[in-house]
Design a protein around this nucleic acid. Sequence first.
RNA 1: GCGGCCGUGGUGAAGUUGGUUAACACACUGGAUUGUGGCUCCAGCAUUCGUGGGUUCGAGUCCCAUCGGUCGCCCCA
Length: 418
Amino acid sequence: MAQYQTPRGTYDILPEEMDKWHELEEVIRSTTKKYRYQEIRTPVFELTPVFKRENDSSDMVNKEMYTFELGDTSYTLRPEGTAGVIRSFCQHKLYGSMEMPAKLYYLEPMFRHERPQKGRQRQFTQFGVENIGIKSPEIDAETIALGIDIVKKMGISSVKVLINTLGDDESRSNYRNALKDYFKPHLDELCADCHRRYEQNPLRILDCKVDHDKDIMKDAPRLSDYLNEESKNYFNRVLSALDHLEIPYEVDDRLVRGLDYYTHTVFEVESTREESGAQATIFAGGRYDHLVEYFGGPELSGIGFAIGLERLLALAEEDHHEFKKELKSDVYVIGLGEVGSEPLRIAMKLREEGFNVDVNLSPRSLKSQFKSAERAEATYIVIIGEEEVQKKVYNLKKAGDKEQVTVTEEELINTLKK
RNA sequence: GCGGCCGUGGUGAAGUUGGUUAACACACUGGAUUGUGGCUCCAGCAUUCGUGGGUUCGAGUCCCAUCGGUCGCCCCA
């Protein structure tokens, strides 16, 4: 028995939960349409190098991917959306055929081999956007606004936007050196992870939870002091655009994000609810100046973010968002006695007329058929007995009513249409 | 990858220091009511406690392993 169950960290989405998924997907599709984004779908697995980039120091790329070999080729189940989209953008030279900025979105399952927790599965669904080709502070603001728009539409109110800038290459490189100089004499005070970060990605030291409260952290050089004019101006324009859009935010200069490819704007939107625990981040993203080149495309900058849908749905529920119910019957057709296929025939007829129709097609007690009608939340109930079949008439009643009327087929359809 | 807690029927769950027949509620099915439901009443719901071993005269209750969930750490593209 135990062998026939979902693998660890995966789960089934059952029919009873489908309403909320459909609603969220609908919100995503209608919102992206408003912002004029187009959907792109890439393979569930890619050649491993697409995700395992050179010089990428992050742990995740090394440890948390589903990678497998077939023949002498290594494949990886996609752990995130951006790499595949940029790969596709370059492979098909979309920079030549699409209007810039290219505005793409995806809504697909992702795979990460992590220890499962609430809001963190091994197969999960992500929605993300990539806005590629034009570098503009207003585009950064619009991208954040798009994400917030969707979160709001799902009734999630308690959120906080954290934003920061990593500056351009020059600023970042100056800062990186300053950090290394600063931490060099203090290395023995830092945790083991930070030693590794010191070599590979010093910015991440600031993120360290272990060493977070130490004095050397508080006195560490600030990125904001190393930004060149251009980077500063860019960031200020992003912030003023957000102000203009009345999107509240908090500048957090410790926010550096896990990936190495980010430049300039990085952001993270998190839930401020207590219950969200360790899985508070709703969506996160940032600008990348070099990813397109990395995948063989021209020198184009892009910005994007990704949202985990499972987490978003969980938060919507915590905020008591009321999901629309689908799947109600307009009509439930009950058959009584030897009525043959007449219930089926009239059900088909009503379906042709555009109604959602449930019909009882096996001999059951009247009582149980009424129960089914209730469960289907049918608006109308049609009852057909042997006499009615003879006379070619139908008993029609509104669910909940005691009275019923006997009508012909034509009258039945006309009544229902009203 | 590390640590804590947990795993009883479709669901929510009770199960005393291990002791004959595993509460209760909801849901479901059938009947009272062989052509009209939503109330009420009655009955049923498959030797079984995630799985596999062990200890014991005897285990849902103890031990080990394993699978899964959950919380925290790590990490979070």
